[in-house]
Amino acid sequence: MYTTTDERGILNNYAVEPQMYLADYPAPEQQERYKLQAAIATLLVGALVLVSLAVS
């Protein structure tokens, strides 16, 4: 950990920053899984909106 001390003796700690890297493009099977998750989420939100409208 990188630490500095000012003239009054107060410590200032800096966190260790992780090494940066570029993300990989998702594989085709991951893309299909994302599409399925999006479809399920859309249906869930749509059903919740319809139920809230029906209840009110």
Rank of each mutant, 00 (worst) to 15 (best):
L43G: 13
L44A: 14
N12D: 10
A15R: 10
L22N: 12
Q37K: 08
R33P: 00
Y34M: 14
A47L: 15
A15G: 09
A41M: 04
M20D: 05
P18A: 05
Y34L: 01
L44E: 14
A39G: 03
P26Q: 04
A27L: 14
Q31R: 15
E32M: 08
M20H: 07
L48I: 15
L43Y: 12
L11A: 14
E32W: 14
G46E: 11
E17V: 12
E29W: 14
L43M: 13
E29D: 15
M20F: 09
A41H: 13
L22W: 00
A38S: 13
G46F: 11
V51F: 13
R33C: 03
L48R: 06
Q30W: 10
E17F: 06
A15K: 10
A38Q: 14
P18V: 04
A41R: 14
P18R: 11
M20W: 03
Q30K: 11
D24M: 02
Q19N: 09
A38E: 09
L36Q: 10
V45P: 13
M20R: 02
P18H: 03
L48V: 12
P28I: 06
E17I: 02
D24G: 01
L48H: 06
V49L: 15
A39F: 08
P28S: 00
Y21C: 07
M20E: 10
V45R: 11
L43K: 11
E29M: 06
P26V: 04
V49R: 08
A23Y: 00
L22A: 12
A41F: 11
G46W: 05
Y34N: 05
P26C: 00
R33N: 01
E17P: 04
A39R: 15
E17T: 08
D24F: 01
E17L: 12
P28F: 07
L11G: 05
Y14R: 11
V51G: 10
P26D: 01
L44C: 12
A27V: 07
V51M: 14
A47Q: 06
Y14W: 02
D24C: 03
Y14A: 11
V45T: 14
P26S: 02
R33I: 14
P28T: 02
I40C: 01
R33F: 10
P28M: 05
R33G: 00
Q37F: 01
V45N: 09
N12Q: 05
P18L: 05
N13E: 12
A23S: 06
V49H: 06
A47G: 02
K35W: 02
Q30E: 13
N12A: 03
A23I: 02
L11H: 08
L22D: 13
